[in-house]
Design a protein around this nucleic acid. Sequence first.
DNA 1: AGACTGAATGCTTGTACAAGCATATAGTGG
DNA 2: CCACTATATGCTTGTACAAGCATTCAGTCT
Lengths: 112, 112
Amino acid sequence: MKSNAMSAEALGLVARRFAVLSDPLRLRLVHSLFEGERNVTQLVELTKGTQANVSRHLQTLAASGVLGRRKEGLMVYYYLQDPTIFQLCDLVCGSLGKQLAAQAEAFAGTSR
Amino acid sequence: MKSNAMSAEALGLVARRFAVLSDPLRLRLVHSLFEGERNVTQLVELTKGTQANVSRHLQTLAASGVLGRRKEGLMVYYYLQDPTIFQLCDLVCGSLGKQLAAQAEAFAGTSR
DNA sequence: AGACTGAATGCTTGTACAAGCATATAGTGG
DNA sequence: CCACTATATGCTTGTACAAGCATTCAGTCT
């Protein structure tokens, strides 16, 4: 595998993965699953979304491999399936935190 | 800061960061800068995009703090400014690789 | 069987945004 | 000042997709 010439196909997959994580409600859902699996109703309450909307976003997340599904009677439990999600979120949050802190400092510096 | 109740604002920022990385051309641009800064014309050639389109995507990437800009005469050089981008890409690529390998194996298993 | 609950799916509407094309700005040299 | 090169910016069009609402599907209980 050449490291400097990613195929268009691979690029599309990576882009798609990022796109899946680029929605606030989906991020809330992922975040709500950090501490363990939850069924749809619980997720609706936790995220304060509508049932239909939450259900659809869960499909998206599951289809992309981020979440897994487990059916138990009437209820469907979703759980984090991709373990890299934690690190991904940590990285982005850390990076944004640093960036905002730097901006704040630069702003404070303007009055010197 | 409570770790289990991210503000809507913070969530929006994270989502936005992922959204910036969710475009194939932008990923190509980022990838083209892995080995050092490049000016717009070079990036147009490397990514085979149009000048206008490349320029606009570079704006997006720079505005979000992923890239930095350096002007030198007529030319503008862009460079990776957020060091976490490497790790972010590695994580996603690794995760996708595992996922695809697992799928391939599962598929092969169907004929057993 | 019917009534009920949890989850998924049509269908529509509004909005964000990528790409294309033409044009404008900025900087350089004659 | 004019011509030229590098980059950025209007403006338009097409497409993807989130949200809302109603409806359907699936499973449980009597």
